[in-house]
């Protein structure tokens, strides 16, 4: 992994545009969009539904390719990476937390967290997974299946899964969207405290202004433009 200066962005979007072809013609989500995210930063992308937040997230994570412009990850253009290199990037350096948790229903909590570690081929997968589940307070529920866990507990398993691989960047897409306020609040506390402890870069997508205010930076995606929100 190349050494990175604290001031060198971990992710950089340069003059990015994204458009879709539909039957009615080409729809442009955004254009001339630029963004620098520094290592260890926490950043919220806010905006109304349909503004293109999730598309922006999948571009930044290398899951999608921009129509114009380029995205650099740790200084390297993502477009230059082939499938295998991008998969390796996701495996080693990126994690996701989803609104609807996305645990595998047939695996218990421990196996769900172990899965990405197993894919990484880590020998300590089992111990790591246990450690992370204990960290999120589920040490007693290792052998519970998703169906046996509450929404909040499922999201905590998902958080443990996301942090277990020690990613450099964590993308969280409306992580509390499916939870009630109290549970959502607890989850956010946990997410930010883990983020602070591990120094991970956190990129959060939300339409919740309070949640966004917990991040160091807030960006508003509106009419295809990204604007820095100052407190």
């Amino acid at each position: 992994m190349p050494h990175l200066n604290r001031e060198e962005p971990i992710i950089e979007a340069q003059d990015v545009a994204k458009s879709f072809r539909t039957q009615a013609g080409t729809v442009e989500l955004f254009r001339h969009l630029s963004l620098r995210i520094l290592p260890g930063e926490s950043l919220a992308i806010i905006g109304r539904s349909g503004a293109g937040k999730s598309t922006l997230l999948s571009l930044l994570a290398g899951l999608d390719t921009p129509s114009e412009g380029q995205i650099l990850f740790a200084g390297k253009p993502l477009a230059q990476l082939d499938d295998a290199a991008r998969a390796a990037l996701r495996l080693e350096q990126i994690s996701f937390i989803f609104q609807s948790f996305h645990l595998l229903p047939e695996l218990d909590a421990l196996d769900n967290v172990r899965l990405p570690l197993e894919i990484q081929g880590r020998r300590d997968a089992d111990a790591q997974a246990r450690r992370w589940l204990e960290q999120v307070g589920l040490g007693e529920r290792l052998d519970h299946y998703p169906a046996q866990l509450s929404g909040g507990e499922q999201q905590r398993v998902a958080i443990a899964r996301a942090f277990a691989t020690e990613p450099r960047v964590l993308f969280a897409d409306e992580p509390t969207g499916n939870l009630d306020d109290d549970t959502g609040h607890q989850i956010i506390e946990q997410l930010f405290s883990l983020n602070a402890n591990t120094g991970t870069t956190l990129i959060l997508i939300t339409h919740d202004i309070d949640l966004a205010s917990r991040c160091q930076r807030r960006l508003h995606l509106h009419n295809g433009r990204l604007e820095e929100v100052t407190p």
Partner: peptide
């Protein structure tokens, strides 16, 4: 498909 999508976001290639 869901499993495949999840595995791919977790870092497995389409080929794998």
């Amino acid at each position: 498909r869901f499993e495949s999508a999840l595995l791919q976001t977790l870092g497995v290639t389409a080929e794998q």
